[in-house]
Simulated assay, not measured.
Amino acid sequence: MTHPWEADPDAVLIRRLGKSPAELGTTGGRDGCPDIWELDNGDIAVVGRDLTEAYQAGLPQDLVIGDGERLVVIPRITLLAVKADLPDA
């Protein structure tokens, strides 16, 4: 089955959006998750905690996690830190 959008596994990570996890203090003293990166094709890669199973039973009716998809949670501070790196349009 083809979807209107497919993730490109050949896209390359080109730059971090926002501050590193170490700068935000979300790593417990080591660099790692959570993080947000821009890919060379303009898509965004998000690294966070996989909580798909924890949320599965309580999803709103119009939220579907499809085959090959996972629900990833990141701290609010991580998302807010990317605002300066995002274009207005």
Results as ranks from 00 to 15, higher is better:
Met1Cys: 12
Met1Gln: 12
Thr2Met: 10
Pro4Ser: 11
Pro4Gly: 10
Trp5Gln: 12
Trp5Met: 12
Glu6Gln: 15
Glu6Cys: 11
Ala7Gln: 06
Asp8Met: 02
Asp8Gln: 04
Asp10Ala: 14
Ala11Lys: 00
Ala11Pro: 00
Ala11Thr: 00
Ile14Met: 03
Arg16Ile: 07
Arg16Asp: 00
Leu17Ser: 02
Gly18Leu: 03
Gly18Ser: 09
Gly18Pro: 09
Lys19Glu: 12
Ser20Val: 09
Ser20Asp: 08
Pro21Tyr: 01
Ala22Phe: 07
Ala22Arg: 15
Glu23Asp: 14
Glu23Phe: 06
Glu23His: 10
Gly25Glu: 09
Gly25Cys: 11
Thr26Ile: 13
Thr27Glu: 06
Gly29Asn: 11
Gly29Thr: 13
Gly29Val: 14
Asp35Val: 08
Ile36Arg: 05
Trp37Cys: 01
Asn41Val: 02
Gly42Cys: 00
Gly42Arg: 02
Asp43Asn: 07
Ala45Trp: 02
Val46His: 03
Arg49Val: 12
Asp50Tyr: 01
Leu51His: 04
Thr52Asn: 04
Thr52Met: 04
Glu53Cys: 04
Glu53Val: 11
Ala57Val: 11
Ala57Gly: 05
Leu59Phe: 09
Leu59Ala: 08
Pro60Gly: 09
Asp62Val: 10
Ile65Leu: 12
Gly66Phe: 02
Gly66Ile: 02
Asp67Gly: 10
Gly68Gln: 07
Glu69Ala: 13
Leu71Asp: 01
Val72Leu: 15
Val73Ala: 15
Ile74Gln: 06
Pro75Phe: 03
Ile77Leu: 13
Thr78Phe: 01
Leu79Tyr: 13
Ala81Ser: 15
Lys83His: 07
Ala84Lys: 15
Ala84Met: 08
Asp85Glu: 05
Leu86Ser: 08
Leu86Cys: 13
Pro87Leu: 06
Asp88Tyr: 02
Ala89Gln: 10
